[in-house]
Amino acid sequence: MRISPYIYKSSSSSSRWIARQTRDPYVKSRITGDSSTPLYRSRSSFKLLSMASKYPILSRSSTRTVVDLGAAPGGWSQVASHLLKGKTNSKIFALDILGMEPIPGVDIIKGDFLSDQVRKELSYQVGEGNEEEVEVDCVLSDMMAPMTGNRTRDVGLSLDLCAAATVFARDVLKTADGPERREGGKTVWPGGNLVIKFFAHPDMDEFRSLELDPWFGKVVVEKPKESRAESSEAYWVCLGFKGDPQLFQ
C-alpha cells in the first residue's frame, strides 16, 4: 500500500511535537508540580510568573482586583490566585466564552468579555452591587486567535484581539492618582496595569505607539525565557494607566 506523503509529513510533525513536549521543563513542571509550584493548567502559566517576578503587575501590596480575558483553561487565573492568596479582599475574575473547571479564589464569568451582559455582571461583582464603582488593578490577556497559516490574516487576527483587550482595559482600569515614585529602590507606577500577548510585526509597533504608550506610564516588551525561542510571541507589559491622553494634553 502506498503511504500518502501528507500522512507521513503529519506523522513526522506529530513525533517532533511529542519529543519537544517530553523535553520541555515547563511542561514537566505543569504536570508534576511541587510545594512551591502548583499544578498549573497551562504551560503559559510560567510566562506570567516570570513577568510578575520582574514587574509589579500582580503585587500583593497594590493589586486587589484582577481580570483575566479569554482565560480558559485558566492557567493565568491560577497564577493570580496563587500570588494573591491570603490577601484580604482580593478578587480575581476569569472571563471566557468557554467553560472552565472551578479555580480556588477565582470567579468565573462565562461569555464574550465585550458583551453588555458580561460587562454588567463584572461591574456588579467588582463594585459589590454598585456598578458605578468599578476599578480594576490588572487586566491580563494571553489570548491567541487560531492560526490559519496565512501570515497577513494571522497578524490581523492577533491585532484584533490586542485591540479588544485594550478597549476593555481602558474602560475598567484604575486611573493613576499621581506621578511615578520610588519605593524600596524600585519605581512604582500608580494606576492599573495591562499585559497583552502579541506576535511581532511592524503593524504591532504602530499599535503600541498609538494605543498603548500615550495611555500608560511605561510600556515594555517582554519575551519571557519560558517562551519558545522559535515563537514570534511576546508580551506588552503596560504599567500605570493614566487615562485618556487627550484629557491631559
Rank of each mutant, 00 (worst) to 15 (best):
A145K: 07
A145G: 10
A145F: 05
A145P: 07
A145D: 11
P146M: 10
P146E: 08
P146F: 07
M147W: 08
M147G: 09
M147Y: 09
T148Y: 04
T148L: 07
G149P: 04
G149Q: 07
N150W: 07
N150P: 06
N150H: 12
N150R: 12
R151W: 15
R151N: 14
T152C: 10
V155D: 10
V155E: 10
V155W: 00
G156E: 08
G156K: 01
L157H: 06
S158G: 14
S158K: 04
D160P: 05
L161E: 04
C162L: 12
A163W: 09
A163Y: 12
A164I: 03
A164E: 06
A164V: 03
A165T: 04
A165L: 03
F168V: 08
F168G: 02
A169I: 00
A169P: 01
R170F: 11
R170S: 09
R170Y: 12
R170T: 11
D171P: 08
V172F: 14
L173H: 00
K174H: 09
K174C: 11
K174G: 05
K174Y: 04
D177E: 14
G178F: 05
G178T: 07
G178W: 03
G178S: 08
E180N: 12
R182V: 15
R182D: 13
E183N: 09
E183S: 14
E183H: 13
G184E: 10
G184N: 11
K186G: 06
K186D: 13
K186Q: 14
T187G: 09
T187A: 13
V188Q: 10
P190K: 03
P190L: 06
G191E: 02
G191H: 01
G191S: 04
N193F: 04
N193M: 09
N193C: 15
V195A: 01
V195N: 00
I196W: 01
K197A: 00
F199P: 00
F199I: 01
F199Q: 00
A200R: 12
P202F: 01
D203E: 14
D203C: 08
D203H: 11
M204C: 12
D205N: 13
E206H: 10
F207G: 01
R208G: 00
S209E: 15
S209H: 14
S209P: 02
S209W: 05
L210K: 14
L210S: 15
L210V: 12
L210R: 14
E211Q: 13
E211R: 10
L212V: 03
L212P: 01
L212M: 05
D213W: 00
D213T: 15
P214A: 03
P214D: 04
W215D: 04
W215T: 02
W215R: 02
F216E: 01
K218L: 12
V219C: 11
V219A: 05
V220S: 06
V221E: 13
K223H: 08
P224K: 06
P224R: 04
K225E: 15
K225A: 15
E226I: 07
E226A: 15
R228S: 10
A229T: 13
E230S: 15
E230A: 13
S231K: 01
S231H: 05
S231D: 03
S232G: 11
S232P: 15
A234G: 09
Y235A: 03
W236M: 03
W236Y: 15
W236H: 05
W236N: 01
V237D: 00
C238V: 06
C238L: 08
C238S: 06
L239D: 01
L239V: 10
